[in-house]
Structure formats: structure tokens, C-alpha cells
Write a protein that binds this DNA or RNA. Structure first.
Length: 503
RNA sequence: GGUCUCGUGGCCGAGUGGCUAGGCAGAGCUCUGCAAAAGCUUCUACAGCAGUUCGAAUCUGCUCGAGACCUCCA
């Protein structure tokens, strides 16, 4: 068995993954800012780290997966004024800030369930950890790497950079930052332009505010993740994840803060997923192409030709390696939808085939087609290697698809039932379940589990069978065509059976 | 302007020195009362130019093009 290798953004190379404590993994992933409804952008990192989490569990690790909810403090620049996103929106919607945050947190959780993402082990909120954040800021001041101005606290990046490799993660050079950082509000308080806020004094109209040693205010952009990762995973932990856009300044600043407080780089492996683009352009407010997840699922967005189910989106994301950009378009989504349907139907078929074969039919090693048997076994085993090579879900799916014709042919008779040994069939079923459901986290989207409906379907199929046996094709076609109009596809199987799917 | 990434067939996307990923779409055939589904076969590639090499989509250089980050962002 080969070892798990991950691409570490911090060293820019693929490394063998060795957890700090054998058998245990601590993973921190930057979660959403709940100042608005979750959009397509939230799908990529949450699904990426979900399959990473699932895979680590599959490998037998005990994983503590921490994903924060940012419900306070982030700034948004709109025109000249810098305002707190959450408090501003709260005024507009006439809600308590916490009411607003709760609303969007609930919507985020709803979307995560749609995607079949597992819950993190701990989901801490920024507002719930003000005390820890203040404590951390005090330590940084005591260590001499932060200074207080008018009730705000700033991190002294220049001093830090003289001692530590500031910019290592994101590939920044401090001198370049000096020249290129553009003007922002409040710059005049800072000693150097690249310094960042640890704590901001709240202006009187600001609703979200907490008491601190420096007066009433709210925490800076980056301190929450340092405080909460330290609290729940320790001063050094295994994996820190997030979107690539967070590398600078967010993760770079986190490293600086934690390095001063805890005297070490917090995480050993930094994993960053790439971005989603829409028709080749980055998704973002500035481009006016942000699609909310609720809009994806219903198709109600000018850019969408139809609704796309959560599993279609999940499958689409899985078809790409997580470190590549992924371009959304109607054509690509529709292709994913069809592909997933094909894969899922083959998987359903496989489960039935293996159940039919039973356990005791013949010797487990008997195969009428050793070459095919070997090929299937090899393609199954290969999936382990693909996944261990930096979580290559794209290649795993390719192999699963390679096996789809084999499954369909076993059913259709193009391949003899005894071509594969019972042991290989069992193995195939186990791998399909492990990968499709447990690791990739896909699930069926059946819409027809209704008992009465299936009873009616049986009846219609029965009537149609009678009609066909009498060569009464006008009746049989009428049944099929009218069902088709309702979105139910009848398929006459070779063996005389009839199956149906919901279009 | 600085830093970096990337350019693969009609579309989406793996791969990264030799052995043609995969999905969707297209074509032909088989099966079929007809369909659908399925199976088999199959056409479109590696931005351009030059170099390294027995051999490059894969390495090097240049040109062109696209994108990201530097500012909240997933």
C-alpha cells in the first residue's frame, strides 16, 4: 500500500502525509462569512474538504474537522466607506445582527445537507470566541509585535518579517507589498501599510461591538481562525484548508499571528482548493455573476437554462482535480447530470446483480474470463492509488466509468454472468459503495420511492405487457408515450422485463 | 505595475517524456414491433515558433492569449 500524498501549498510540493499523532488528524478549514446567502463559491471548498474528510475517515484516521462560521467583523469596501458587512445588512433588513447571522447560517447548513456534506466535528463561531481572540491579541502585544492606536490594535508586519518568512505561503515579497498595496481607509493609523488589524475600535453607529482592553470594538479579519484553531486543535495541527483566494492575506496573517503566540507555524500541511469560474470568468460580486445555491437548485437565475441538482453540482466538482479551476456552464452541467445518471444506474444494477448472484454460487475464484477479471480488479485497486495521490477524484471517476460498460454488459448479456468470479463481483460492489457513497459522498436522488406510485407503475406495466402480447401496439405506445410526457421513461429490457426511470 | 497560474479534440476536463484518461455531444452498427436504454466501433487534440532528446502534449526559451492574487471574497 502506498502512502497518502498531498500537495502542500506551504512548500509548493507534494509530500507524504504523516499526522502529528499516529491515527489522528486535526483539520481546520475556513468556513463561510454568514453575511449573505450561500452561493456557488461555497460549494467548492466545502465539497472538497468533505471528500478529504471522508477519505481520511475511510483510511481509518480519527479526524477532528473544525470549520468556523465567520459571523462578525469582516470589512467590506463599498465606495469610500468601510463598513461592517453584517451590521450594515442588519440595518437594511431590520434584524438583530445575530438574527441575520442565524438566518444565513441556517441557509448554509441547509445547502450543506443538500450536498450531502458531513458535519464538521466542531463548528465554532467568531462571536463565540471573542475572549480567546482578545487573549491572543494581548499575547501578541506582550511579545512586541502589535501596537495600539486610538483603540485599535495592529500587527507589526515589518518587524515580524525581519525575523520570520512573511509571504512564504503566498509567495509575496514584503517590499513589493509596500509598493503595491493601495490606499484604504484607516491607513494613517498604521505604522506601515502592510500591517493588518487585530482589533478595530467601533465607531458609535456600529452595532456589533464588544468590550476589550482597548475599548469597544470588534476583532480583525484574521484573528478568529488563529484563536479557534489553536483552541480546538492545538498550537500545531495537521491540515489547514481553504480556498486559494484566502492564501493572502488571510492565511499569511494567520501564520504570523500564530507564530508569535505559539512560536510555530500552526499547520503542517496547507491545502487550497482552486476557484470556480462561470463562463470563463471568476465568480464574484464585481462581475455580477454570483449564483446563489438556492438559485442553482431551482434554476431561477438568468445565467441558468435549468435547475441543477445538488448531486449534479457535487459530481461536477468531483470530476475535476481540486487544485484546478473549474468552469461552470450550462453545457458542462448538463453533461455532468447525464454522466451521473449513467454512473448511478450502473451502480444500482451492480447492487442487484451481486445480490442475485448470492454468496455461495460456485467457487469465489472461478472465472470464465480471467483477462477481464484481472482488468476489473486492477481498475478497482487503482482507485486507491489515485485517491492517495493528492485526492485525484477525477481519475477515480474515470475508472468507475470504465467499469460501467462491464456492469451493463453483465446485465445485457454481452458478457457472460460467470465471466467475473463471485469474489471479483463482491469486490466491485464494495469498491463502488466505498468510493461512490462513502468517499465521494454521492447519493441517490430518487423521486419515486412512493409505495402507491410504484404500485400504479406495476399496474400500467402489466396492462402494457398484455397489450404487447396481443400486438396491440397502439395501446402499449399510448401508455409509454403518455408516461413520457409525465417525465417517466419506460424501457423494455431484453429479458422481457420493463424498467422505468424518472427523467 | 508586481507576483503567480494556465492555454488539451464541438463542450467540460485528467495526464505530464514513449503505451491514445474519462464524461457529454456527433457518426455507424447490433439488439428491438417501434422507441428508450444498453453494447460494439468511430471522427475532431494537446495555442504558436524554436530548441533539448532516439522520441515531447509532457522539459527549455521566446511569442501570442486567458485567468488569479496584490482589496471583502470560497
Amino acid at each position: 500500500m502506498s502512502q497518502l500524498k498531498v500537495h502542500n501549498s506551504y512548500t509548493r510540493q507534494k509530500e507524504v502525509f504523516t499526522p502529528l499523532t499516529a491515527g489522528h488528524v486535526g483539520m481546520y478549514v475556513c468556513g463561510p462569512t454568514v453575511s449573505g446567502e450561500s452561493h456557488l463559491g461555497h460549494a467548492r471548498p466545502t465539497i472538497t474538504f468533505d471528500f478529504i474528510y471522508r477519505y481520511l475517515l475511510h483510511l481509518g484516521y480519527k479526524v477532528r474537522y473544525v470549520r468556523n462560521i465567520t459571523d462578525a467583523g469582516h470589512f467590506e469596501e463599498e465606495g469610500r466607506e468601510a463598513e461592517d458587512k453584517i451590521s450594515k445588512k442588519a440595518v437594511l433588513e431590520k434584524l438583530e445582527p445575530m438574527e441575520l447571522v442565524q438566518k444565513y447560517t441556517n441557509l448554509f447548513h441547509w445547502a450543506m445537507r443538500q450536498f450531502n456534506n458531513l458535519n464538521p466535528s466542531i463548528e465554532p463561531t467568531a462571536t463565540g470566541h471573542i475572549v480567546e481572540q482578545i487573549g491572543m491579541i494581548e499575547t501578541i502585544i506582550r511579545e512586541g509585535y502589535a501596537y495600539v492606536v486610538n483603540g485599535s490594535v495592529y500587527f507589526d508586519v515589518k518587524k515580524y518579517a525581519a525575523q520570520y518568512p512573511y509571504g512564504k505561503l503566498s509567495g509575496r515579497v514584503l517590499d513589493d507589498l509596500l509598493e503595491t498595496t493601495r490606499d484604504l481607509e484607516g491607513q494613517e493609523e498604521k505604522r506601515n501599510r502592510q500591517d493588518f488589524a487585530l482589533w478595530k475600535a467601533a465607531p458609535p453607529e456600529h452595532i456589533m461591538r464588544w468590550q476589550s482592553p482597548w475599548g469597544e470594538g470588534f476583532p480583525g479579519w484574521h484573528i478568529e481562525c488563529s484563536a479557534m484553531s489553536t483552541k480546538y486543535l492545538g498550537t500545531e495541527f495537521d491540515i489547514h484548508g481553504g480556498g486559494m483566494d484566502l492564501m493572502f492575506p488571510h492565511h499569511e496573517s494567520e501564520i504570523a499571528q500564530s507564530t508569535i503566540c505559539n512560536h510555530r507555524v500552526p499547520a503542517r500541511y496547507w491545502i487550497h482548493n482552486n476557484m470556480i469560474t462561470i463562463n470563463g470568468k471568476k465568480m464574484g460580486k464585481a462581475y455580477g455573476n454570483q449564483i446563489r445555491l438556492s438559485e442553482m437548485f431551482t434554476g431561477k437565475h438568468p445565467l441558468l437554462q435549468q435547475a441543477y441538482s445538488p448531486m449534479t453540482i457535487r459530481f461536477f466538482i468531483l470530476q475535476t482535480h481540486y487544485r484546478s479551476t473549474l468552469d461552470f456552464s450550462n453545457e458542462a452541467l448538463q453533461a455532468a447530470e447525464k454522466g451521473l445518471k449513467r454512473l448511478w444506474e450502473a451502480y444500482d444494477l451492480l447492487k442487484k446483480l451481486v445480490a442475485d448472484e448470492g454468496e455461495g454460487n460456485g467457487s469465489p475464484a472461478t472465472t470464465a474470463d480471467p483477462a477481464l477479471d484481472d482488468k476489473v480488479t486492477k481498475q478497482l485497486r487503482e482507485m486507491d492509488e489515485f485517491m492517495k495521490d493528492d485526492f485525484n477524484t477525477a481519475k477515480v471517476l474515470a475508472n468507475l466509468f470504465e467499469l460501467v460498460p462491464v456492469i451493463n454488459s453483465l446485465k445485457g448479456g454481452q458478457i457472460r454472468r460467470d465471466a467475473l468470479s463471485p469474489a471479483t463481483l463482491q469486490l466491485m460492489k464494495r469498491y463502488f459503495t466505498d468510493y461512490i457513497e462513502n468517499i465521494l459522498g454521492l447519493k441517490g436522488e430518487s423521486t419515486g420511492d412512493d409505495q402507491k406510485l410504484s404500485g400504479v407503475m406495476e399496474l400500467l406495466i402489466d396492462i402494457r405487457r398484455d397489450a404487447r402480447s396481443k400486438k396491440d401496439y397502439s395501446t402499449s405506445d399510448k401508455i409509454r408515450n403518455q408516461l413520457l410526457q409525465l417525465g417517466i421513461v419506460l424501457k423494455d429490457e431484453k429479458d422481457g422485463g420493463v424498467s422505468y426511470t424518472f427523467a
